[in-house]
Design a protein around this nucleic acid. Structure first.
Length: 395
RNA sequence: GGGUAGGUGGCGGAGUGGUCAAUCGCACCUGACUGUAAAUCAGGCGACUUCGGUCUACGGGGGUUCGAAUCCCUCCCUGCCCA
């Protein structure tokens, strides 16, 4: 690639979806210099499901990879085995070795949709963290003061609220920082929420007499409901979501987030993004966004199919072309049927859905909760709620 | 070690002897509206029901009472303060 093109890629790398770079000029120099850098990303092995929020850093890593740099994954199996302190259940079992391995395999599979995993180094931090002695830890801990630790916003908030902050949590940045020392990271990447931990890497590297890593922080993106994207909120779009679900979730995002998603979760050129946002109506822009995102994880074809299905089902309110068919025996109550089809979790819920007008047979609302399916309903299409359809054959 | 406050539905959080299947907010479900599964509005939101009710639930166990989420005993767990 020519110099001009490379310069452009570097500019894009350092700005698209990027919240902060430390030290920006230093990193730019190194990128321009042509040396191969080691780019580190820490991975929490407790939750194998990657969501779109995490894809932001992975896409960023892909950009690094495109420039020929080496990606280094650190699996936080050691920290994972100790357990997450923010979890209330104290009896929570530690993550077993097998569990970590399993989670990691799923993780790698998902990350592989974005990155060339054959060119990714993977290390488990238990390899070195488990060998540290108390005096090693003591020395490293000396690089930090209690004051700077509790000055952190999230810690401050919890302390002010009278919440518990475990002493062990103070050790987290140490562990993460130590990882940087071990793998000789040139750059560490993470979300803005990782600021303190990322900086700890710099500090400990200096402490160990090596050159401090540069840090690239990506923005955190809001979830489908506008709040912070988090698995515990249930507002995530997961990389493992089937194409149609994924597409639907993108469509449920508030219009105001479309640009953010375009910038952070796709690599559609920025000029094109602003063009799309300016010229197309919000719905079409969002449809495009859905296609782009689904295409990354499931391919262009699946993306097209997901869009067609969405438009047909929700915009045109059509019965899906490829609807499921089931055969049932005559005389089955609608109530039982809904529960069997998993359209309702209990008979009470099924009753509610019927009484609230959520169930249709051949387009006709059924309000009688004691409705019984007979041969008259043979080949009928039952529609429950907004998206559950099934065609029945009566035996 | 001492003191003190707590453990309620998926979460947050009311309730301190009956009218509590438990106010309310979030999440969720259904409907209306809409370009969207957004926003807004309306209704719903333990299970079973022959729609009269019945059963299971307020950290675990035991007890008092006609009746307990609410009182007593006991066990378990957690926060905060002091040392």
């Amino acid at each position: 690639m020519d110099e001009n093109e490379k310069q452009k890629l570097i500019d894009e790398l350092l700005s698209r979806g990027v919240a902060e770079v430390i030290d920006r000029e230093h990193l730019r120099h190194r990128l321009v210099s042509g040396e191969t850098l080691r780019i580190k990303l820490g991975i929490d092995p407790t939750s194998p499901n990657i969501h779109l929020g995490r894809s932001v850093t992975l896409l960023k890593l892909r950009d690094f990879q495109a420039l020929g740099h080496t990606i280094v994954f650190i699996v936080g199996d050691f920290t994972g085995q100790i357990g997450d302190t923010s979890d209330k259940e104290s009896e929570r079992p530690m993550l077993s070795r097998e569990m970590v391995r399993e989670n990691m395999a799923t993780y790698a599979e998902q990350a592989g949709k974005i990155l060339d995993m054959t060119r990714v180094e993977i290390h488990a931090n238990s390899t070195w963290l488990s060998k540290l002695t108390f005096s090693d830890i003591g020395k490293e801990a000396d690089a930090f003061s209690v004051a700077e630790f509790i000055a952190r916003e999230n810690i401050r908030k919890r302390l002010d609220a009278g919440k518990r902050v475990s002493l062990r949590e103070m050790l987290y940045p140490l562990m993460q920082g130590h990882d940087s020392v071990e793998v000789s990271a040139d750059v560490e990447i993470g979300g803005t929420d990782q600021r303190f931990n990322l900086l700890a890497g710099r500090k400990l590297q200096e402490h160990a007499g090596s050159e401090p890593q540069d840090i690239l922080m990506t923005n955190l993106i809001p979830g489908t409901d506008g709040r912070k994207m988090s698995s515990s909120w249930g507002n995530t779009i997961n990389l493992l979501d089937p194409p149609r679900d994924m597409f639907g979730k993108v469509m449920s995002v508030p219009d105001t987030l479309v640009e953010t998603y375009f910038i952070h979760c796709t690599r559609v050129p920025r000029e094109e993004v602003s063009l799309v946002l300016r010229s197309e109506n919000p719905r079409d822009a969002k449809l495009r966004l859905g296609r782009e995102i689904v295409a990354i994880y499931h391919g262009v074809e699946a993306a097209g199919d997901a869009e067609d299905a969405f438009v047909s089902l929700f915009s045109k309110r059509e019965v899906p072309r490829d609807l499921r068919e089931v055969t049932i025996s005559e005389g089955k109550s609608l109530l039982d049927f809904l529960v069997e089809q998993d359209f309702a979790n209990s008979r009470a819920e099924a009753r509610r859905k019927i009484e609230q007008g959520g169930v249709e047979i051949n387009g006709e609302k059924i309000l009688d909760r004691d409705f019984v399916l007979t041969s008259r309903e043979n080949l009928a299409i039952i529609h429950c709620g907004k998206k559950d359809f099934v065609k029945i054959h009566i035996l």
